[in-house]
């Protein structure tokens, strides 16, 4: 793509040399403005990372907790000096996993339908609706989990097995929340697969389903994996849904029908005023945030790697 651009641009370059010399102040202003915007977003990111590290250093430097205790302890109760991140981490993993179990098949199915099967008319109706779903504030999803999903789960599995605050309902709703993300990213990847591949498959006698699943999806795998990883980091970082529906007490449990508290849920509860500022308890939430940041940062790196490593280039 880039090479073709260059070759076509080169011959026109010569006669236009004069034009290049002409000064265009507004161009410069626009360029400088855009540059400043880019710089600001970088500085904001750096600032956030700096604050996270600084406050976390204060937390680990207090002498009340060391990194090994922090990573392996099984109780998180800052008021009595218990700082083991496992219960928070585990519940984040469980809710995200449930979310991905919902979002991945549904999102992928939606993407395949939209890119391979849907008529332009159906696409024109469905895509905007999907985008509306992405625009709903997450706090609404939170109440949806608490007042719709939890009662539904309780009527299915019994009120004795499903607690009022539970990880399953939060996880499922996170899944619904990230369907649009997965669907639209995967759909982009699927649409980018060149038509010649599909036609080749048809030519060999493949059905539409076979073409979609065996030719198009594998060809778009790198884009789909990227969508999945972005979806995971979205699920891990999701806050309002879990704050409202998952519970307010850290608990080390694998049972998705029990209440627990995720990392984000804990941060939002504590910063809401549960603990005093300037105390070790308060600093502890920055260490959780740093932990979260590291997770999502790694996920992003993996996604970049996957995209580059497994990208299939078609002409």
């Amino acid at each position: 793509m880039q090479t073709t651009l260059k070759t076509t641009a080169a011959p026109i370059d010569l006669p236009q040399l004069d034009l290049h010399k002409r000064r265009r102040p507004h161009e410069i202003i626009i360029q400088a403005f855009l540059f400043a915007c880019g710089i600001i977003s970088i500085f904001v990111t750096l600032g956030i990372v700096f604050v996270l590290f600084q406050e976390s250093l204060r937390f680990f430097g207090s002498g009340e907790v060391n990194l090994i205790e922090f990573l392996t302890g099984t109780t998180w109760q800052p008021a009595i000096g218990e700082f083991g991140i496992l219960p928070l981490f585990l519940s984040t993993i469980i809710t995200s996993l449930i979310g991905m179990l919902v979002a991945l098949p549904l999102g992928l199915a939606v993407a395949i339908y939209l890119s391979e099967y849907a008529s332009p008319r159906a696409r024109g109706i469905l895509k905007p609706i999907l985008e509306v779903l992405a625009g709903i504030p997450t706090v609404v999803y939170g109440y949806f989990a608490l007042t719709f999903m939890t009662p539904l789960l309780r009527s299915l599995f019994g009120a004795d097995t499903v607690q009022i605050y539970n990880m399953a309902s939060g996880g499922i709703v996170i899944g619904i929340l990230i369907i649009p993300l997965i669907a639209s990213m995967s759909e982009d990847a699927l649409s980018a697969v060149p038509r010649s591949l599909r036609e080749g498959a048809y030519g060999l006698g493949a059905t539409k389903l076979e073409t979609s699943l065996k030719i198009v999806v594998p060809a778009a795998l790198s884009g789909i994996s990227a969508a999945v990883i972005v979806g995971i980091s979205r699920a891990v970082g999701e806050t309002m849904v879990v704050a409202l529906s998952v519970g307010a007490g850290p608990k080390l449990t694998f049972n998705p029908f029990e209440s627990a508290e995720t990392m984000t849920g804990h941060i939002v509860r504590i910063s809401g005023g549960d603990l005093s500022y300037d105390s070790i308890d308060y600093n502890s939430i920055f260490s959780i945030a740093l932990f979260l940041f590291v997770i999502t940062f790694l996920l992003n790196l993996i996604s970049r790697f996957v995209v580059q490593r497994f990208r299939e280039v078609y002409d």
Partner: peptide, 27 residues
């Protein structure tokens, strides 16, 4: 304090409505 905070199935919230909802929802 330790005895209370180490208890299992403990939900702590500054929002009393969260507590109301929790007790209301489970026998």
């Amino acid at each position: 304090e330790e005895a209370l905070l180490k208890a299992e199935n403990l939900q702590l919230s500054e929002d009393d409505n969260v507590l109301v909802q929790g007790v209301e929802g489970d026998k």
